[in-house]
Amino acid sequence: MPEIHEIATLTSKGQITLPKPIRQALGVDAGGKVVFELREDGQIVVSRAEAEHEDPAIGAFLDLLAKDIETGRHVQGLPDDLARAMLAHAGHAISLDEEIDGDVVI
């Protein structure tokens, strides 16, 4: 990767705008995440945030949808293990075998 030297101005709120060549080199757009790493020698390394924050249940669900699109089928129901994983990652302790009380709005 070629060396890029850019200057950004810090606002009174501590914000900066990443210069366009830096955004392009990192491969980030609006809403993208970057990581700042302060090293012992005082250098700061800025890099694109990778999959460390991605939810594995969402990835599995997206894979399931992609396969359905490829085959022309429609998702009829989620596999129980996938549904449980999605609920666990969403912070809900739910039994898929429990009766549903009240109306369900979809």
Rank of each mutant, 00 (worst) to 15 (best):
M1D: 08
E3C: 03
E3R: 08
E6C: 15
I7N: 14
I7K: 14
A8H: 06
A8N: 07
A8E: 10
T9D: 11
K13E: 15
G14H: 10
Q15L: 09
I16W: 02
T17D: 09
T17C: 07
T17S: 14
K20V: 14
P21C: 10
I22W: 09
I22F: 11
Q24Y: 11
Q24P: 00
Q24S: 12
Q24F: 08
V28E: 02
D29V: 11
G31Y: 04
G31D: 06
G31A: 09
G32C: 10
G32E: 06
G32Y: 10
K33E: 13
K33Q: 12
K33N: 11
K33S: 13
K33D: 09
V34A: 02
F36Y: 04
F36C: 02
E37M: 04
L38C: 01
L38W: 04
E40L: 12
G42A: 05
G42R: 01
Q43N: 13
V46I: 15
V46R: 03
S47V: 00
R48C: 09
E50C: 03
A51M: 03
E52M: 06
E52A: 11
H53V: 07
H53D: 09
E54Q: 15
E54R: 14
E54W: 07
E54P: 00
P56K: 01
P56H: 06
I58S: 05
I58A: 09
I58F: 08
A60V: 01
A60S: 10
F61D: 09
L62R: 14
L62T: 14
L62C: 11
D63E: 15
D63R: 12
D63F: 08
K67M: 10
K67V: 05
